[in-house]
Simulated scan of single mutants.
Amino acid sequence: MNYILSFIVLALDQISKILVLKYLKNIGEFPVIKNFLHFTYVENRGAAFGILQHQKWFFITMTILIVGFIIIYFRKERGYPKPMMIALSLIVGGAIGNFIDRVVHGFVVDFIDFRIWPVFNIADSAIVIGQVLVVYVIIKYDKLEQKEM
Rank of each mutant, 00 (worst) to 15 (best):
Y141F: 15
Q131S: 15
V108Q: 01
V67R: 03
S125T: 15
R115D: 00
V109A: 03
I127W: 01
I96K: 06
W117N: 09
D124V: 04
L12S: 07
R102D: 12
I86G: 09
F59N: 00
I4D: 04
K22G: 02
V92L: 05
I139F: 15
E29S: 12
L10I: 07
Y3H: 08
E29Y: 05
Y23R: 11
Y73K: 10
R75H: 10
I27V: 14
I129H: 10
H38D: 14
P83M: 11
I72H: 12
L90I: 11
V109L: 04
E145R: 12
I33S: 08
F69P: 01
L12Q: 03
K17I: 13
L10S: 08
L12G: 08
I4V: 14
Y141A: 04
P31E: 13
S89R: 07
I27W: 06
D124A: 09
L5V: 14
F69Y: 14
V42L: 03
V32I: 15
Q131A: 15
Y141T: 03
Y80D: 13
L12Y: 09
G93R: 04
L37W: 07
V109K: 00
I64E: 02
T40Y: 01
F114L: 15
M1R: 14
I100Y: 06
S6A: 13
A87S: 13
